[in-house]
């Protein structure tokens, strides 16, 4: 079947099988390998992308369902410079192995688009659909707090680390 959608601002058209999952279309056919696959039960969220602005698990959407949609993947986030959420993850050590990170970042972007000043509790529940096995989430929460502050035009909360030399 032919499917056509906008991915990171470009119109992409391709032939796919009906059963092709959106994540496989992005990864295999468009070579956008930043979107990852960590499970098949719609739990881990590593495959999260924005579909028409909403955080979506691209492993639980058929590519053909995304016909006509506007899809943003982690590769389409930075606009010449890093997105504040990407910057937050870098500044506050919001990632270790990096595998869950693209999906986590996309969820955080969606969260902050809906709520520009989330509490810690709102952040934690807002990213419940994304599993991370490395960070214990502590620094992911700090990263999102950093991004939220900078997106509001405020100074980010102070870093937790002091030099130990």
């Amino acid at each position: 079947m032919q499917v056509s959608m906008t991915v990171n601002g470009r119109t992409r058209t391709a032939d796919v099988e009906a059963r092709t999952l959106l994540v496989h279309y992005l990864r295999e056919q468009l070579n956008l390998t930043g979107t990852h696959v960590g499970c098949e039960t719609s739990y881990c969220g590593a495959c999260t992308v924005l579909v028409d602005g909403k955080a979506t698990k691209s492993c639980t959407v058929l590519a053909v369902q995304a016909e006509g949609a506007d899809v943003t993947t982690v590769e389409g986030l930075a606009n010449g410079e890093l997105h504040p959420v990407q910057e937050g993850f870098w500044e506050r050590h919001g990632l270790q192995c990096g595998f869950c990170t693209p999906g986590m970042i996309m969820s955080a972007v969606a969260l902050l688009n809906e709520n520009d000043n989330p509490s810690e509790d709102e952040i934690r529940h807002g990213i419940e659909g994304n599993l991370c096995r490395c960070t214990g989430y502590h620094n992911i929460v700090r990263s999102i707090e950093y991004a939220a502050a900078t997106m509001r035009g405020e100074d980010p909360p102070a870093s937790q680390w002091k030099d130990e030399s």
């Binding site: 990864r27 070579n31 956008l32 390998t33 930043g34 979107t35 990852h36 696959v37 993947t73 982690v74 590769e75 986030l77 930075a78 890093l82 990407q86 993850f89 870098w90 500044e91 050590h93 990632l95 990096g98 595998f99 990170t101 693209p102 970042i105 870093s159 680390w161 002091k162 030099d163 130990e164 030399s165």
Partner: peptide
Amino acid sequence: AGVIGKAIRRKEDPALIQGKGLYTDDMK
């Protein structure tokens, strides 16, 4: 001065936060 014991942000991260890090399944 101050390189050891300092909370330097990671050199690994720019690729990973932009979805440019390459894992085995990304290889073709």
